[in-house]
């Protein structure tokens, strides 16, 4: 009786192992045949430095380096497809590209057109202050806030003006002047995009203000929906790049 039970258990374990192995092999083999060619065709918008742009007729930027790193990690070769921003999803839908790495954020209305990866960057608004205690919009009451006139930060400031006790608004023409105002002590804080903040810091490396995220605008990879295996592989690879510090190193190179 015991021997029979052991035999059944052994057969069951072997069956599970075979099924698991065949699933893993299937996933591995499914990735390359799913692509229409030996390359993964990546749609990029080369008009947005420092994410992607041309330098001496060569594509460079954070997203270009990220794509090279991801492709190396999952053993695929790259074919670049340069596109305008408003043509990115059309190219994905028309099967002209396999994925898009072009500072796109998840769009609920396009979920049938794309599978979205986990975020690789957050371009949302940040509160920048020289005062380490002023790290929250709710603490702004009575303080001076700078932002770029007419920008998303302006809208967000208006929203907070309806929520908390009044604060003083200091609109400037562009985000870098709003950050100048913080650095020079003309205001208590500035509300700018994370990218504007990082690029400003490159010009003022000695300046170390407190920075807090206020809104989120995640940048993700949009993958052709028929390439679910590729999307999963990209997610796993992004996890690895974050865990081993590669993603942070790429961000430091281009943004921080």
């Amino acid at each position: 009786m015991a021997a029979a039970a052991r035999l059944k258990l052994t057969i069951l374990l072997i069956g599970c192992a075979v099924a698991g192995l065949s699933w893993v092999v299937g996933q591995w083999r499914a990735l390359r045949p799913a692509l229409p060619s030996e390359f993964v065709r990546i749609g990029v918008d080369p008009s947005l430095p420092p994410f992607a742009f041309y330098e001496n007729e060569t594509l460079v930027g954070f997203e270009i380096d990220l794509a090279y790193t991801l492709a190396a990690d999952i053993a695929l070769d790259i074919q670049w497809v340069a596109l305008g921003f408003d043509g990115l999803y059309d190219a994905l839908r028309a099967d002209r590209v396999d994925l898009i790495i072009a500072a796109v954020s998840p769009d609920p209305l396009r979920r049938s057109d794309a599978l979205y990866s986990r975020p690789y960057y957050d371009a949302g608004l940040v509160l920048v202050s020289a005062n380490a205690e002023l790290v929250d919009m709710s603490n702004l009451a009575g303080r001076k806030l700078a932002y770029a006139y007419g920008s998303a930060a302006h809208s967000e400031a208006n929203r907070w003006l309806r929520r908390i006790s009044p604060f003083y608004t200091h609109p400037y023409e562009i985000p870098s002047i709003a950050l100048d105002a913080v650095r020079l002590g003309a205001v208590d804080a500035a509300l700018v995009s994370a990218t504007d903040m990082q690029l400003y810091r490159r010009n003022h490396p000695a300046w170390m203000p407190a920075t807090t995220s206020v809104t989120h605008q995640p940048f993700v990879i949009a993958v052709n929906p028929r390439l679910g295996v590729l999307a999963e592989a990209l997610d796993r690879s992004l996890d690895r790049l974050e865990a081993d510090g590669t993603l942070a190193a790429l961000l430091r190179r281009w943004l921080y």
């Binding site: 918008d45 008009s47 947005l48 921003f85 408003d86 500072a103 770029a148 006139y149 007419g150 920008s151 302006h154 609109p171 023409e173 562009i174």
Partner: peptide
């Protein structure tokens, strides 16, 4: 739009 070459800054 920050993504259109025919656009201007919000201000």
């Amino acid at each position: 739009s920050p993504r259109w070459s025919m656009a201007v800054a919000p201000s």
